[in-house]
Design a binder for these strands. Structure first.
Lengths: 345, 345
DNA sequence: TGGGCAATTTACAACGATGTAAATTTATTT
DNA sequence: AAATAAATTTACATCGTTGTAAATTGCCCA
């Protein structure tokens, strides 16, 4: 309860050492629970620590050990339901391994994305978990490796980096098969985004195509709806225009829950009923899916698994593992809700 | 373009100094753009930096300056639309002042909240922006001040801390007046949460009462709906039970957008139309308000103003300002959407 | 040409911890 | 009880930078 007076200089290790009449190293040993310390010494030092209100200076510790015990998580947008869940999961996974997380927002800006990897300043973090939005495989390959990096998401990443993603193609197939199972015949895809280099959309589109052809149908390219930007408003406009132009479809797979919610709004405004007239499936299974009306069926990546795997792989690298990049596929499922319900038997 | 080989030891200031044939301090001066350096020297050093791919070691710099240029933002939940907006705004405001933000999740756990302030380890950050959920004014007053702290939100904070919030009572009055203006007579309040020490709800309830009495009516305490926890599901149950039990009301002010969306779902499931039968107003104006159906009118704190003010005040403290805590009221507005529309003239 | 001053540059000691290896104490063996 | 081994504790250098104050250089003017 006692402690340093307000404004007084911070108590250092050497102050504790003097107070306890031991060497600084012994105090350090006690702080770190080093086993070879006699009980008597340990309690003497602990009392001194208590008396003086000593708290270790992290910066000094970092300087000498060369470890920060921090990792960065670089994502395009903090204020996005998928990424904020991801951040949450990464923070928790890192906590379990005694790491803290510094969250960096790249705003989907390729310069900022590259900056994260080029780390202009050394020693901020021990490693980086990075979900690119703009940067391409080629850009990445060009970076000098400094701190360890694990890549997340759908970007085709160069073999030199560890990488975790869900199988986007398979997941899209599953989603389309579900829609086909509901008897839908004209299934649209919402969200072919201009300038999306990361490749997620392409893979999802590929799966969409596979499933449709597998069912003996052919893809009508008119059903692949392009969207100007990642902003949901443009998705809404796209859907409105499609409906007004007389396009006929009875289901839509969206590359994103936000697009899906925008589609729900557009359809509702035009008097199209979901799921009766059009079934909708989103992607990411964010909180929006629970809160929207109707609630949204959505492709659900196992965020916790992704986060744990990413943190685990990154820490292995930090601890010195070398070798070419490892690629892992993370589990996912299709979370069924009202907008594309289970087939009633 | 050239640089340290992979695996090679990091380039230090002294390496650059040797390479350029100058003292380390001169290199340091160049790195910091110190003005009294001859152009010739400056370019020589810059070339050496370029040649060797030197990057300053942040940890060493921090040790000697005693500054981390990081602030912590401690919030109950990262994965929450209000707090993730707040985090976003704080990060941007801090960026403008050359600070980075470490986000700490307290999980609304009072031990974790206290831990944030007691900072077990010194030197992680220069200051903390803290939005308490559980901790009371009294608990706070008890903390020894170490690093500077700015308190956010509705908790009555002790005078010794800087504090920013919106005027919850006034905002609630505004919201209720809007509902009264729509001709609503029986206005409910959703979300009197058990164990919510932070006091936000009380202030909002107070405003609710003021506005109702100002209109010459009296508060029917049956209309104040208690909720078990912060989880939206409990709000949904509360509303369902209220309606089923035959409670009559034509509007509801919710302490939270998530509660409001839960209310929308409950009302819809029971065939109550919003806003025709019941008008709904949420609180925080999160993205949920845009995505819900119908879209949600909501009390909208000016998050950017809050973030900028908080960062500004904190930095003033970090730079040495002393004196008793300053209290600031942040601007807010009532964002009108479909669930409680503007009065048509 | 030399003195006085300001502008540059440098040497060296911090910052506060931990790692290494040596010094001391304690325990064990013969 | 001496010799040896094991367990504790310590002294001191070190991590990579910046602050301070002293040393050097260059410029201006008498």
């Amino acid at each position: 309860m006692s402690g340093a007076k307000n404004g007084a200089k911070r108590v250092r290790l050497v102050d504790v050492a003097r107070h306890a009449g031991v060497s600084t190293k012994t105090v350090s040993n006690v702080v770190h629970n080093y086993e070879h310390v006699t009980p008597e010494m340990r309690s003497r030092v602990k009392k001194a620590i208590e008396d003086l209100g000593y708290k270790p200076n992290l910066t000094a510790r970092r300087l000498v050990t060369g470890k920060t015990s921090m990792i960065a998580l670089a994502i395009p947008e903090t204020n996005h339901p998928y990424f904020s869940s991801l951040a949450d999961a990464v923070v928790k996974a890192a906590e379990d391994r005694d790491y803290r997380v510094l969250i960096e927002q790249t705003d989907g800006d390729s310069e900022k994305e590259l900056d994260v990897l080029r780390d202009r300043e050394a020693g901020m973090v021990d490693g980086v978990i990075f979900q690119p939005a703009k940067v391409t495989s080629l850009d990445l390959a060009d970076i000098e490796e400094g701190t360890p990096v694990v890549i997340l998401g759908e970007a085709a990443s160069p073999i030199s980096f560890d990488h975790i993603m869900i199988d986007n193609t398979l997941a899209a197939e599953d989603a389309v098969r579900h829609l086909l199972g509901l008897g839908r015949k004209r299934i649209a895809f919402l969200g072919d985004i201009r300038g999306d280099n990361a490749g997620a959309t392409k893979k999802r589109l590929a799966g969409y195509q596979v499933a449709i052809e597998e069912a003996g149908m052919t893809v009508d390219t008119n059903l692949v709806l392009p969207v100007e930007s990642f902003h949901p408003e443009s998705a809404k406009v796209t859907v409105e225009e499609a409906v007004k132009s007389g396009m006929v479809f009875d289901a839509v797979l969206c590359r994103d829950d936000r697009f899906a919610v925008a589609a729900l709004q557009a359809l509702r405004d035009l008097g199209v009923e979901v799921p009766k007239d059009v079934a909708v499936i989103g992607w990411d299974d964010t909180s929006l899916a629970r809160y929207s009306y109707p609630t949204l069926s959505s492709v659900s990546p196992n965020i916790q698994a992704i986060a744990e795997e990413a943190v685990g792989m990154l820490i292995e690298r930090i601890e010195g593992l070398s070798g070419t990049g490892r690629h892992k596929l993370a589990p996912y499922s299709l979370h069924i809700r009202e907008s594309a319900p289970a087939l009633k038997l």
